[in-house]
Design a protein around this nucleic acid. Structure first.
Lengths: 199, 199
DNA sequence: AGCATGTATTTTACTTGTAAAACACCATCG
DNA sequence: CGATGGTGTTTTACAAGTAAAATACATGCT
């Protein structure tokens, strides 16, 4: 749980046409799932038959999955009165185990410094986070979880993971593994290169 | 291109532990990519060794991929002065080929009615969309693209797809196909069930 | 016809995020 | 030492989304 913020989209991009051989079905099933994205791609192809709708099948689905998963995923968090960005921030403090500065929190949660400032203000007021000034450099602040904050995170985490496990169980374990692997490969390369391409 | 809105998150959830056998590497490569999510998962496991961090490997990566892809993907759109939600709306009108009501647009772009109202106001002012009242039922409106709107969409679409193709080319074609297939399976089942689970 | 109810759309009030500017402070160089 | 420039953080002004209330109609029932 817990990345940064989030709010994916609807349906989109290119089809798998560009790709190559393999068609659908990942591992075990046999039927081609007909999802929303497939329908959208079909519409585009009928309007612009010449277009290579390949990327839509991948990017459109990633976006749509992210949207659906987050909607679902946020449920356990809301029960605890936290938004996902808030939980991400607390989670960063919890998993690193040590204090972090606002800048570090921004990097860790993939959000802007201003957004972090606002969240910290609220979380501090709620008593989940504590602030300490740096002795050497009075510009920087160090944030840490209060006991209440730590307990909250530790309480939510198992629920969150259990819920996510349930949601993902629509895929067989091998499918989950394959998916994780492919996404890791894509993500690793995207994170590495990002910035090279400039449309 | 073009789902609805979007704005995924950082790193999160469970590991692949829950899953089963297979480890990484999707198809052709051999090295395990070390992405941001893997690092986050390692941190969580070192703090809470008992936790099943399985789902994180999948959900965290989907979110992060969506975030990165959108940031990149939006570039061609911004060049045309459109946000993705705006383009999604125009795209829905273009691909369906006929007029749509605000409600239908909301469904099609996965956004709220209020959001659609606001976007329509702007797009209409920009002369990309036209409104027509329904004769039978004066509550409903029918929206259609103007010539300028249609031309804009048709002009952007190829750029967008080409750009996405380039971004995805970090994955081999077979990898793209497998990924699309697995995501289709996940998405199809999520869209089918969503609502059943309630944490 | 008259009214209760339901639906399509918009409006309102508010929340949250962002970009850019403002602050506050360190560090270095002359 | 005092100006110059750079960095960490917060503030400001603004853009965009949401939930819930408000509007404006249509419908079905009596």
């Amino acid at each position: 749980m817990t990345a940064t913020s989030g709010r994916p989209a609807a349906a989109s991009d290119a089809g798998r046409g560009a790709g190559g051989g393999l068609d659908d079905e990942g591992v075990g099933s046999g039927a081609v799932m007909d999802d929303t994205v497939a329908a959208v791609v079909r519409q585009w192809r009928s309007v612009h038959p010449a277009l290579d709708t390949g990327p839509m099948e991948v990017i459109g689905r990633i976006n749509r999955c992210a949207a659906l998963l987050q909607q679902a995923e946020d449920a356990p968090l809301r029960r605890a009165g936290l938004s996902r960005p808030e939980f991400d921030l607390l989670g960063a403090l919890r998993r690193t185990g040590h204090e972090l500065t606002p800048s570090e929190l921004a990097k860790e949660t993939f959000s802007s410094g201003a957004a972090v400032t606002k969240r910290l203000k609220q979380l501090t007021e709620r008593g989940l986070v504590e602030r300490r000034g740096d002795a050497r450099d009075r510009r920087v602040a160090h944030l840490r979880l209060t006991d209440a904050g730590r307990d909250l995170v530790d309480g939510i985490l198992p629920e969150q993971l259990a819920y996510e496990t349930a949601v993902l169980s629509v895929l067989a374990p091998e499918g989950q593994g394959e998916l994780a692997g492919l996404l890791a490969e894509l993500l690793g390369r995207l994170e590495g290169r990002m910035g090279a391409l400039r449309a």
